[in-house]
Design a protein around this nucleic acid. Structure first.
Ligand SMILES: [Zn+2]
Ligand SMILES: [Zn+2]
Ligand SMILES: [Zn+2]
Ligand SMILES: [Zn+2]
Lengths: 177, 177
DNA sequence: GTCATGCTGATATAGTATAACATTTTCGTT
DNA sequence: AACGAAAATGTTATACTATATCAGCATGAC
């Protein structure tokens, strides 16, 4: 069923995967989803989505702002934040609260519960959708008499690649060498 | 074993509980913990802890800054942030990433895993320590080959009191009437 | 008392996000 | 094609959150 063949265990991609195809897939899906939902994926929004997908690391709003300013001249924060808001509303990206940054959603258009794994060594983020974990969350909320509306699940640590290679294997940007 | 007798189900306190004793207990415990850990709970740090405990709602750093400025004249941000950092390091408060704010820890000195329930109606936050949930988190990380170092678990929704009373029961400050 | 350390004060600046209003684009209707 | 409503973007200003840096002071060991 899935055509995404580049995942390692845990949702982190192979370090040498073809990332251009990640981006292409994400953009293609976004086009389809926005058409289905009757919302407009304008060139600006599409460009911001592409910027979020520029890597598997979290991207900050002001990073995107810098990219846009370089490409098309001075751009103001609301331009970026409005596009990000659109992408969030339509489930195309996720916000990482603990980092004030964003990553592309790997299961757009599927109305899923997700959890984020954040590698502190390489800086990459993996999105998982662990049913047992989400069930445990629902149970815990229920036991507390709490009506659950929104989950923020961010787990920081070491991805399997970094666990094996150790911190000496990273470059200045946090990427694996 | 516990002398905290004011909890409703789910960790939210009774709306008419004696909050002064919450604060007193928190400060007393902090004194004991800091003594045991050989760290200094200075008057400033103690005052900031008290400010965080001023309610069961999240308190922002700049809220505290305003309180301090009112009490003792102009105070600069680093004064507050350094005290908050100390309190975080010593497990006396928790940071709520999704709100850029802080709440007092209800189990200080116990090296526990915690999860936060954030009521969107009354604004209060409950800390739970659900073993099954934490176990599910550890399992999910393990399945992903991920070495877990830090968990951010923030669940937003409606507490049992607000679930029953509905939004009309709230005052302008978000507190139950 | 001296010294090293840790804590606080003070100034400046960096980083993140939104309010408010103006202009342009889009798209259906006339 | 002209019009008008709604949506999107541009623009300016400002609010909110957080940290770097250096100076001065308090504490406790010796
Ligand atoms: Zn990729
Ligand atoms: Zn990694
Ligand atoms: Zn209380
Ligand atoms: Zn409530």
């Amino acid at each position: 069923m899935t055509d995404r063949h580049q995942d390692l265990a845990g949702g982190f991609p192979e370090t040498d995967h073809d990332h251009a195809s990640c981006v292409d897939e994400a953009l293609d899906r976004a086009v389809a989803i926005c058409e289905r939902r009757q919302v407009r994926l304008t060139p600006l929004r599409r460009r911001v989505l592409q910027a979020v997908w520029s890597s598997h690391k979290p991207v900050g709003a002001y990073n995107i702002l810098t990219m846009l300013t370089n490409e098309r001249g001075t751009t103001a924060p609301p331009t970026v934040y409005r596009a990000l808001e659109f992408l969030l509303e339509n489930g195309l990206i996720h916000r990482i609260e603990s980092l004030n940054a964003f990553v592309g959603c790997t299961k757009p258009g599927q109305d899923h519960a997700w959890q984020l794994l954040i590698c502190r060594a390489c800086g990459r983020v993996a999105e998982i959708s662990d049913g047992k974990l989400d069930h445990a969350i629902a149970d815990a909320a229920s036991r507390a008499g709490f009506i659950l509306q929104r989950r923020t699940i961010e787990l920081a640590g070491l991805c399997s690649a970094c666990r094996d290679s150790g911190p000496a294997q990273r470059d200045g940007d946090g990427a694996l060498v």
